[in-house]
Design a binder for these strands. Structure first.
Lengths: 258, 258
DNA sequence: TAGTGGTCTAGACCACTGC
DNA sequence: CAGTGGTCTAGACCACTAA
């Protein structure tokens, strides 16, 4: 920031209530992980109708401050912002160092949380956009690695890798445990060392499955990172699509100036 | 994408109406730049109450598909997605090539739009976060370059650069027109060539001024890019904060694998 | 002034949770 | 079953725009 000067006056009642709740949360009235009073209670407390409270909570949900579980209540969110360092992420030293099984583990551990990754591997026809990115023919076979990632049990990321089957089939890349250094190291051993990475970032509303897995509200955006790994010879050999709750992550890049 | 399989059934009426309007727009029933029927009309048409139509339009607004002007009506958005190429953005060739006054011009022209940039320059005390990023003392003087950028007259970006006054004061950097190649070239001439750039990306709700300038709705997120330029010697010499409507931009990065 | 969208209310019904 | 949040409705009032 830095540019923000003009004090904003919250206009609508819903915004005023949202601001009041935000202040109460950051003042510690409602600690992390605790439950907010019910909407009926808050409606009485603030002297507004319940849909107004609902609208206020929708604002805070979009910011990631609270999370609502239907039928149960509204909870103050536990996991804070995570930074994804693209610069160090693909350095061999970081990939292979220590007992970390990849960059994600390091990111989560550095925050003091316990990372967990569930992996499901399959072979399938490449979706059209993936086929195009990998310069394959329509419907070509790819090894698909679906990863669901958690911090202290809380879902925080969803990533799906696609590797051409003519490279990966029958190798450790097609196993759930891809070994030390991850699939980039395996691909290097197979003669497909990645020399260059491109990442395209966009923001979009979450899909149904993503909403369910990452406990997202409709109003919460996700970051979609479309990651492509290229060999020295200029062949795209891996596509990985990361989906992250937008409020929860910060992406960091480092670029040389040429 | 590529991972999306499960067909989503829109649950709420508002979502159903939103889906119907989305389909109608992409079918061409409501061309770009045209006005949607009034909420009262749509309410009658779809057999729902007006607040339901309002909720449906809020969904489409968050996606950037429509834009509402109070008292006037709701308009189908004109400018499509713009890609910001960080990789080529800071290459000397791109900065200095042709009559382009910087990377933004090239990005907009390549889409067939007419770019425009308004610049306001001043000298001020650095905001705390900027001072920290520039490794300056609190309240140190910086040259502030505020840029408002348009594509065909539509506001699409807001960027504020901060350069330590001990570098920039009295130079062309403190002039509205920073000359060919922009301020990076001027700084290089002054012995502060930037060798390395770091960019940190996050998504957040827009501030009041940003909302007004970029015609954003409360539900529309912005991308904030916090850009720092470093000299070879490791001194941070420029901070630039970019703010962009999240739905409108795609960010592209290229990284070497080391 | 008429037409637009923004918002609030009071009440209602539903779905889901957990006792 | 009671308690939670999700959502819709009908009507209302307001602010803003354009004629």
């Amino acid at each position: 920031m830095g540019a923000e000067v003009a004090a904003e006056e919250p206009r609508s009642k819903a915004e005023q209530v949202a601001a009041a709740l935000r202040a109460a949360i950051s003042a510690g009235d409602y600690p992390r992980g605790s439950r907010l009073p019910s909407e009926d209670t808050l409606a009485a407390e603030y002297g507004v109708a319940r849909p107004t409270i609902n609208a206020a909570e929708r604002i805070l949900r979009a910011e990631g401050l609270i999370r609502t579980e239907r039928g149960r209540g509204t909870i103050v969110t536990e996991i804070p912002v995570i930074t994804r360092q693209a610069a160090t992420r693909y350095a061999r030293s970081a990939r292979e160092g220590g007992q970390n099984r990849g960059a994600f583990d390091a990111e989560i551990r550095s925050l003091g949380y316990q990372p967990r990754v569930d992996v499901a591997v399959s072979t399938a026809q490449a979706p059209p956009d993936v086929a195009e990115a990998l310069q394959l023919e329509r419907g070509a076979a790819v090894v698909v690695r679906e990863r669901r990632m958690y911090a202290d049990g809380v879902p925080v990321q969803f990533a799906t890798s696609y590797i051409p089957a003519d490279i990966a089939a029958g190798t450790q890349i097609a196993e759930p445990d891809s070994g030390p250094g991850g699939i980039m190291s395996r691909m290097a051993e197979l003669g497909y060392a990645q020399a260059r990475i491109t990442e395209t970032v966009r923001v979009r509303p979450p899909g149904g499955e993503e909403r369910a897995f990452m406990r997202l509200d409709k109003g919460q955006a996700v970051l979609e990172i479309w990651h492509v790994g290229w060999t020295e010879a200029g062949r795209p050999v891996e596509v990985c699509v990361h989906v992250l709750p937008a409020w929860q992550w910060r992406l960091s890049y480092e670029l040389p100036v040429t």
